Amino acid sequence: MEVHAIETEYYISLLRDKQEETQKLLSQKENEIRKLADEKAQLCNVIFKETSIYKTIERLSRQDKTKNKQDLRILLENEQKKLRSTIMEIYKDYIEYLHQTYPKYTEDDCLFSCLSICGLDDFTIALCFGNVNKQIVAQRRHRIKLKVAN
């Protein structure tokens, strides 16, 4: 009986060691996956920054924000369509991930997320949505937080 108890304790100890080892390996693999996802996002950003629509956005972002709001140029409807199709193509996998993880996300939410990970400021993102008021970006960010929370 005592021998059986000692054997059982030994096997339990082996199983715990194996579990810790497996946990470490799993954690390491998760970190590698996160790193690869970050690298992929950076590559998507590089590709996006080489497009003509990005160059248009970049030009718009350099406008004097202190000018009369009526004089500021925004992304026109046909340019917005080009932006959407470009983003949907380049960030296809990321958008797919967003839809799977957050089924309530709209196309605009996905577009906003992609523009955000590209590092664009709120004013520039507002211009991409055809608006000069960056308050719409704060509102969208708030709505997205509500969608994620529910």
Rank of each mutant, 00 (worst) to 15 (best):
E58D: 13
E58P: 07
R59G: 06
R59P: 08
R59K: 11
R59E: 08
L60T: 00
L60H: 06
L60I: 04
L60W: 05
L60A: 04
L60E: 02
L60Q: 01
S61C: 02
S61V: 02
S61L: 00
R62I: 05
R62F: 12
R62K: 14
R62D: 11
R62T: 08
Q63V: 11
Q63I: 08
D64M: 13
D64P: 15
D64F: 12
K65D: 15
K65L: 15
T66E: 14
K67H: 11
N68Y: 12
N68V: 03
K69Y: 13
K69T: 09
K69M: 08
Q70D: 14
Q70V: 11
Q70K: 15
D71L: 09
L72E: 01
L72P: 09
L72A: 09
L72I: 06
L72R: 09
L72M: 09
L72Y: 09
R73S: 14
R73K: 15
R73D: 13
R73T: 14
I74K: 06
I74D: 06
I74F: 04
I74Q: 11
L75A: 13
L75R: 04
L75K: 02
L76D: 12
L76T: 02
E77W: 03
E77T: 07
E77Q: 14
E77K: 07
E79V: 04
E79H: 05
E79A: 06
E79G: 08
E79R: 05
Q80W: 00
K81T: 10
K81S: 14
K81R: 10
K81V: 09
K81M: 11
K82Y: 06
K82L: 13
K82E: 14
K82M: 11
K82D: 10
R84A: 09
R84Q: 10
R84I: 02
R84N: 10
R84S: 07
R84V: 01
R84P: 03
S85H: 03
S85G: 06
S85V: 00
S85L: 00
I87Y: 03
I87V: 12
I87C: 02
M88T: 14
M88D: 15
M88I: 12
M88L: 14
I90Q: 14
I90G: 12
I90L: 04
I90C: 11
I90V: 11
Y91P: 09
Y91F: 14
Y91A: 13
Y91G: 14
Y91M: 08
K92T: 06
K92H: 15
D93W: 05
D93I: 02
D93Q: 12
D93A: 12
Y94F: 05
Y94W: 02
Y94S: 13
Y94A: 13
Y94N: 13
I95V: 05
I95S: 08
E96A: 08
E96P: 02
E96Q: 12
Y97S: 03
Y97N: 04
L98M: 10
L98H: 07
H99V: 01
H99P: 01
Q100M: 03
Q100N: 07
T101G: 04
Y102N: 09
P103H: 05
K104S: 13
K104I: 03
K104F: 05
Y105V: 04
T106H: 07
T106G: 13
E107S: 07
D108H: 04
D108I: 04
D108Y: 02
D109N: 07
D109A: 01
C110A: 08
C110S: 08
C110D: 06
C110L: 02
L111G: 00
L111W: 00
L111Y: 00
L111V: 01
F112I: 07
F112R: 04
F112L: 04
F112C: 10
F112D: 07
S113Y: 01
